[in-house]
Computed example of a mutant assay.
Amino acid sequence: MSDMFPVLDLRDTERGPQARAEFLDRLRAAAHDTGFFQLVGHGVDGSAELLDLAREFFALPQKSREALDILDSPHFRGYSQLGRERTRGIPDLRQQLDVGPERPGAPGPGDPAYLRLVGPNQWPAELPALRPAVLDWMSRLTEVSHRLLRLLLEALETPADFLDAVVDPDPQVHFKLLHYPGPAAGADDAEGQGAGIHKDLGLLTLLLQDDKGGLQVAVDDGRFVDVPVVPGAFVVNLGELLEVATRGYLRATVHRVVRPAPGVDRYSAPFFFSPRLEASMQPLPSPYVSAAGGVVHDPDNPLFACYGENVMKGLQRGFPELVARHHPDLLAPAGR
């Protein structure tokens, strides 16, 4: 299983030419074969403290969390109660807090729908330490993600700065605090999904998870296998836009999260690194890409080169109540 989810040490890129070349070979293989790997040596500390803040947030009184209801945010920011977000139409049995870049939101008439994602976050007054901790975490993971993206391009024999134009100076980033509560013993919903079967939408996802496990990845024979918990590691996976840009050479692999056992609580914190909302992906000038067979098209999941269009596709499916309340003009089917 370690070969399926290799542990890559980012420090190897600074340990001389041979160590760097070996790192790039392993990175390319992981991104091509599975689309998932574990990253250590990233230099980002504070993981335990962040997960402690997640526990504190989800332990706040229900009234305090509901004051941040995502349904009150036209920008898809805030707290979601158990089952609010859906994957393939089925409620995900998790609570979450969605956070994006802190910006004023003021889309004008005729602006693309994806500009409605630009806006302020919602923060709990009862937990003032959360806002600076999360914003600092997002800043540090943005730097790691950009570095990792450049290394991935280098591994594909593509100029390392080829995608700088789509992520600089202002990549679209998205962060979630997640709580997966295990069902009560004998509960009717014990078989529900933690997070349903899906692919991520952008470029890279860096996931911090606790020691409970639960993340599963689909392999070639259709089986789902558990991603091991590696202390201090980020689980890294590729998003759909890298699959598009590499004509399918790199994989945005289907994955899911199973519910914890009764009485067990799982906490995690995924960070999503993506191009600017208006940016579109172009095929990478790489010998690996030119020889690739092309993206396998799923009629239930159309892929768009423009990131803003791709992410709106997912949000329209995931938050139908929010769309109905704030964006009724987007209620036309979004692909799945």
Rank of each mutant, 00 (worst) to 15 (best):
E191S: 14
L148V: 08
E56Q: 15
N301G: 02
L130K: 03
P104T: 14
F273C: 00
L208P: 02
K313Y: 04
S47A: 15
Q172E: 06
A59Q: 07
G213W: 02
G41K: 10
A125P: 02
E154T: 14
T246G: 01
S80G: 15
L97G: 07
P104K: 12
E157R: 07
R84A: 13
A165I: 08
Y267T: 11
F271W: 06
G105D: 00
A218M: 14
W123N: 03
P74W: 10
Y307Q: 03
V99I: 15
P302V: 01
G293C: 02
V227E: 10
L315A: 02
S64C: 09
L141V: 02
E102F: 01
L277P: 07
D211W: 02
P183F: 08
D25C: 06
A125H: 14
P183R: 05
D164C: 01
R103I: 04
Q209F: 03
L135C: 06
K313V: 00
A31Q: 12
A29S: 15
K63D: 15
F76D: 10
R223T: 13
E49K: 10
D3M: 09
E278N: 05
A155E: 04
E56G: 00
M312G: 03
S268W: 08
R77S: 09
R116L: 03
L284I: 04
A261P: 00
L60D: 06
V134K: 09
R116S: 12
G196C: 05
G100Y: 01
G202H: 09
D220A: 15
F23H: 02
L284Y: 05
Q282R: 14
V44Q: 02
L208G: 04
L117Y: 10
R116T: 13
E278Q: 08
E143H: 08
V236S: 01
T246E: 03
E126Y: 04
K199A: 09
G78F: 11
H179G: 01
R336G: 14
Q62T: 12
N310P: 01
N301E: 11
H327D: 12
S274D: 14
L10E: 13
I197G: 01
E126T: 03
P328E: 11
S73H: 11
